[in-house]
Write a protein that binds this DNA or RNA. Structure first.
Length: 559
DNA sequence: GACGGCTCCAAA
DNA sequence: AACTTTTGGAGCCGTC
């Protein structure tokens, strides 16, 4: 059963839909502030809720204590179906661009200071028929797709991901402001008045200015810094840390130290703490599908997907609770092995360490070489050590390397590539296409041709990476969707935050917050969900997706 | 003063 | 150690 949910001037409308996508029974309108009470009893029948944006409907339901088992997020699904090579013949794919092609109108949601149910006075962006028509179009596109199961799984996983994102934001990651402040105090000194440098940062700066004999140096200005380094005889063309590390000079140590501390202050200092931690929780603001490849993005909310290892010690479980931290080891190369059906590479990963397996196969000499070679294969490196190792890797794993090479060649020609479950890459922009066309024109110079080749290779690196990164993102979605269901079962009917629940996600890593006594059960669930994700996506292909799991009190203790 | 481009660094 | 992919954010600096 499906139940669609949309806005009307009088309130929210609930409309049952049968499996053919046709309206079934009469619509029911309820005031927005009574929506949760209307949804909760229906949820007992396990419907799939159909709505325009999970980020718009679900947070207020969670606030009201209502959890949803499954949904269709029409906007996220639309983006996938619109671009997928698997549905390119559908009416949806050829329809005129509409509001469904716009990103979630979150500005409207967030601008409102009032409760999120206070929708009456806003323009209703999604009229009733829009939601129902769009859903029918999507069902039709999926049913007629080259492989309905694949694209159907992707839609379900993407929508489940949207639920997870809302639930993580709702629950929040346990965060000890006290531990965070202690860490800041240790590295930076006491909190200074706003606009001033902390004591310890100022001290390091004094040593730096001394060493460079530049008393007026502004260390935050790359140009100023470059000049001062030049005067001191240090010829570098950038002030990047890795470049500075190669130099030997009394100024280098304080400079690197300054950069490290300044970064901590700017990215995760007191200001970050003030704006992002409330009542002992950091509430990540994930954007499912926010990256072209299908990865999640994060915005506002403090950069959840760039949470530095340095400050993870402030993530402390509640008393009597634990974190189960799990990351998928060497996810992307394993995804590549599965995608390409490369039995040799699958075999190399079967013992646990894929890179060690590659060494054991004799393709390369050391684990570091295996790692750099694999990264190079997936990113499209041609120079350096990685480029040098490519021929040997290609000989050992022709199918795996062949797959990324083929994706790269498609991109160089401006063609579309598609992930395992059916997310397709965007087409290059008009500038790119014009550049390619001009390179073959009468008036083209060698420089034009060379620039066009460079851009073609650049787009090829993008499509090469797209198939791997995008398929890995799909695996992560399947993993989390399965884990979410299992955690709910373990919770035995308790509310999300009173039972094991997801509190963090970072591309190939999840953190579950759970009562200590359930940690072992949660660990088993995390592993089972990973195995199931592999089966769902790749069937009987014997590729394993081992996890590194740690049960800890403190996120900083994991890995 | 707003804005965009640039540099640098955090994550996977 | 980077090279080579996808991101977000802070600060600087020139332009408007």
């Amino acid at each position: 059963m499906h139940v669609s949910l949309f806005s009307a001037p009088q309130g929210a409308v609930l409309q049952a839909i049968d499996d053919d996508g046709r309206v079934s029974g009469d619509p029911r309108t309820v005031p927005f502030d009574a929506l949760a009470e209307a949804v909760a009893p229906l949820e007992a029948e396990h419907p799939r809720w159909v709505w325009d944006d999970t980020s718009r409907w679900y947070p207020p339901l969670l606030e009201a204590g209502v959890r949803i088992e499954r949904c269709v997020d029409l906007r996220l699904s639309h983006a996938i179906l619109r671009g997928s090579a698997l549905t390119e013949g559908s009416a949806l794919a050829s329809a005129a661009r509409s509001s469904w092609d716009q990103p979630t109108p979150e500005a409207r949601v967030q601008r409102e200071e009032h409760t999120l149910f206070d929708l009456e006075e806003r323009p209703v962006s999604t009229a009733a028929e829009d939601t129902l028509v769009e859903f029918a179009l999507q069902r039709e596109a999926i049913a007629a797709a080259d492989d309905p199961r694949r694209i159907g799984l992707l839609i379900a996983a993407e929508s489940a991901g949207a639920l997870v994102a809302a639930e993580i934001r709702h629950a929040g990651l346990p965060w000890s402001a006290e531990a965070h402040e202690a860490m800041l105090g240790e590295h930076l000194g006491p909190r200074p008045p706003s606009g001033q440098r902390p004591e310890k940062l100022e001290a390091v700066l004094a040593r730096l200015r001394d060493a460079l004999e530049a008393p007026a140096l502004n260390p935050d200005s790359p140009a100023d810094l470059l000049k001062a380094l030049g005067v001191a005889g240090l010829m570098v063309k950038s002030t990047r840390s890795w470049e500075l590390k190669k130099l030997k000079h009394p100024a280098i140590a304080p400079l690197l130290e300054y950069k490290k501390l300044a970064r901590l202050l700017a990215a995760n200092g007191w200001h970050w703490l003030d704006t992002n931690v409330r009542d002992g929780r950091f509430h990540p603001d994930y954007v499912p599908g926010g990256v072209v490849t299908g990865r999640w993005a994060s915005k506002g909310g403090g950069g959840a997907l760039q949470l530095p290892k340095q400050i993870r010690g402030a993530v402390i479980a509640d008393p009597g609770w634990k974190f189960v931290v799990a990351d998928a080891s060497q996810l992307e190369p394993r995804i590549l092995a599965a995608l390409s059906g490369d039995r040799g590479m699958a075999e190399a990963g079967s013992a646990g360490d894929l890179y060690a397996g590659i060494v054991a196969s004799g393709a390369v000499a050391t684990r570091d070489e295996a790692k750099v070679a694999m990264l190079g294969a997936m990113y499209g490196a041609t120079t350096g050590e990685s480029g040098r190792l490519m021929p040997a890797l290609t000989r050992a794993y022709p199918r795996a390397i062949g797959l990324v090479e083929e994706a790269a060649r498609a991109g160089e020609k401006g063609e579309v590539v598609t992930t395992r479950l059916g997310r397709s890459s965007p087409r290059p922009g008009s500038e790119w296409r014009e550049g390619q066309a001009e390179a073959y024109g009468e008036t083209a110079t060698d420089a034009d041709a060379s620039r066009a080749r460079g851009q073609a290779r650049g787009w090829g690196r993008f499509t090469r990476n797209f198939v791997v990164q995008g398929s890995a993102a799909e695996w992560a979605l399947c993993w989390m969707a399965g884990l979410r269901g299992r955690l709910h079962e373990i919770g035995g009917g308790l509310w999300i935050t009173d039972s094991p629940h997801l509190v963090f996600f970072m591309h190939d890593e999840v953190v579950v917050h759970c009562p200590e006594g359930l940690a072992a059960e949660v660990e088993a669930a995390v592993r089972a969900a990973a195995a199931e994700a592999g089966r769902l996506m790749f069937g009987p292909m014997p590729v394993t997706f081992p996890l590194t799991v740690a049960v800890v009190d403190n996120y900083g203790q994991a890995k």
